[in-house]
Design a protein around this nucleic acid. Sequence first.
DNA 1: CTGAAAGCGCTTACAG
DNA 2: CTGAAAGCGCTTACAG
Lengths: 333, 333
Amino acid sequence: MAVTMREVAQESGVSIKTVSRVVNNQGEISEETRQRVLAAIKRLEYRPSKLARALVTQRTDTVGLILGDIANPFFSEVARGVLDRARPAGYDVFLCNSDYDPQQEIHALYSLADHNVDGMIIFPCWENEEKLKAFVDQYMPLVVVNRVFAPHPGMALVLNDIRRGARLAVEYLVSKGHTAIGMLAGRAAPLHVMERVQGFREALVAHGLPVVDEWILTGSPNIDVARGYEAARQLLTQHPQVTAVFAYNDLIAMGAIRACSELGRRVPDDFAVVGFDDIEFAGMIAPPLTTVHIDKYTLGQQAVTRLVEMLDDPESDFPPIRLDVELMIRKSA
Amino acid sequence: MAVTMREVAQESGVSIKTVSRVVNNQGEISEETRQRVLAAIKRLEYRPSKLARALVTQRTDTVGLILGDIANPFFSEVARGVLDRARPAGYDVFLCNSDYDPQQEIHALYSLADHNVDGMIIFPCWENEEKLKAFVDQYMPLVVVNRVFAPHPGMALVLNDIRRGARLAVEYLVSKGHTAIGMLAGRAAPLHVMERVQGFREALVAHGLPVVDEWILTGSPNIDVARGYEAARQLLTQHPQVTAVFAYNDLIAMGAIRACSELGRRVPDDFAVVGFDDIEFAGMIAPPLTTVHIDKYTLGQQAVTRLVEMLDDPESDFPPIRLDVELMIRKSA
DNA sequence: CTGAAAGCGCTTACAG
DNA sequence: CTGAAAGCGCTTACAG
C-alpha cells in the first residue's frame, strides 16, 4: 500500500541506504544524487515509516499526556499548551484520562509505554509516587506536574505553589470576617498529603481558627460540578454554622454555588465560596468566582519543554520548575 | 533495556514462536508449556512491543482525533466520549488541534498517518473535503463528524442536524418578536456551505424577514470568547438596529454577552443572544444562555464505534449516523 | 503440539 | 561519495 524506501531506491537508481541518507539529511552525498532521490521521493509521494525507524532507533517521536479529566477546562487548557509546544518540537501526543484513580492511571501509563512513547507528562495521584518511580527506572522519563514528589532520577517536576494558593484563598476569607470555614476537598486522597488541605490548615492555624475535620468534605471518585453540588448540600445542611468554603477547584465551587442557590443561601452574603484554577468561565458565572489563578497554558508548555530537555540529555538531572499562583478576587467571596 | 520475546523463550525453554502463540492466544498449545511460558512472562515482566508487532501486522491499535481546539469545552467533552469508548476497544488515541485551519488540519492528518494510526476521527474544515477523500483512498479510514460531505468509500459520517438546530434558534428569536437578526458566524469559511448559516437564512426567509449580509460577521481565525466579543462589539456599534444574534457557538455567544454588558445593552431586553453547543457552563453564566444542545459525549462515543466497525470490516460501507439537537431555552433570549 | 526461516521498513556500523 | 549485511522485535506461512 504505502510506498517504501526500497521503491524510492529503485526509482532513483541508488541503494536503499542512500535514500535513508537523504531522508535523514546525514552524511555527504553528491548534490546530484540528492536531487535525484528527492525527485523520486516527491514523485512517489514517499513518506518514511516512523514505525520502522522507531524499531531501530528506539525513538517514536511521541509523548504521552495523562491527566485527571480532559472535560475539566483546567486540563483542557493545559492540554492546549502541551500540544502547541509539542508539535514544533516534533512530537505527537497521546492523551489519557486517569479519572483521578490510581489504578486507571497505572493502566494508562503502561498502555502508553507499550506504544513506546519517548516520555510522558502526568498529573499523578499521590498514591502512585512509588510506582511511578519504579516505572521511570525501568522505562522512560516522566514529567510530574503539581505533585511534590521527592527527587528521583528520570523524573522532573513542574510545580505551581498550590499550598500558597490555598493559604491565599483562606486568608482572604478570614480577612472578610469568616471564622467558620469549611473545605470541599474533592476526591478522598490521603488528606494530610494534599497541598490544598495543608495550606488550608496552615492558614486557619495561623489565624487562631479551629480546623474542624467534619467541615472538610471528600469521598467521591469524581471532581466535577455534580460532586461540588452534592458535597456543598451536605455541608450546608449538616453544618449550617459554616459561612464559607474553600473548594478543591472551580468545578466544585460552581457546584457549591448551585447548591446555595437551591437552598436559598445568597453568595457571598450568606455563604462565601472560593475556587481554585481560575478556569476561563470562572469570571462569567453568577456570581463571578473568586478563585486562585493558575497559568494553565504555560504550565502545559513548560512541562513539554522540560520533557524535551530530558529526552535530549538523558544523563542530567533537572531541578523543579516553579510557577506562581495568584488570588483573583471577584464576587463569590 | 526492555525484555524481549527471545528472552522469554530462553527462560522458558521454548521457541520464540511458541511465546508468540501464548501471547496472542492462538493455536493449540499444551497447557503445560502454556503455563511455563506464562510464568516466564510474569517473572521477567515481559510486555510485547506493539511497535514490532505493528510492523508486520500493519495495525498499531491507535487512532487519531483531530478537532478544532481542545480548549473549547465542546471539543473537550467530545474527546471525553472518544477516550472512554476507545480504551475498552483497545485503542489509544492521538490528539491534534487544527485551529480550524485547513493547512494545519492537513498537516496533522499526515503527521498522524506517519505514525500508522489505524484510523482517525476528524471535525474537518469544509475546504478539505477533496483532500480528505484523496487521503482516505491512499491511507486509512476516516470518521468525519458534523460535516455533510458526499458519500465516499472509507469515509463514514457522524452528524448532528446542525441546520435544524440553527433554524430552531432563529425561529425562537422570531417568535420573540425580533425582526432584525444578525449572526456571529465565527471563522470565515465559505458562508454558503456552512450548515449554521444555511439554517439561519432558511428560517429568516421562511418568516419573510430580510437576510442582511452586513449583519453576518466572520473574519477571524479563532472561534473563542475573545472573537465573539470583538465581533459583537462591531455589530452592536455599526448596526445598532440589530436586536438579536445567533452565535456560531457558545464561546462566541459568551463574548457577545460580555460586549453587551460593556456597551450597556441589557441581555435579553435590549439584545438577545442564542448560542450553539450547550457547553456545560452555558447554564451557569449570567444570564444563562439560550442555546442549541448537542450531546457531545455521545457524539464522541458514536464516532469511535463507527470507526471500530470500519476497521473490523473494511469492505463495507456504512451509512451516516444521525444524532438530534434540541433548543435549550434559558434567559439570554 | 512445536520450530526454523523469511520478512515487515527502516538504521547502524563497517567497507570500499 | 556510495553500498551490502545485519538487526530492531515481532508475526506469517510452511514444515514436521
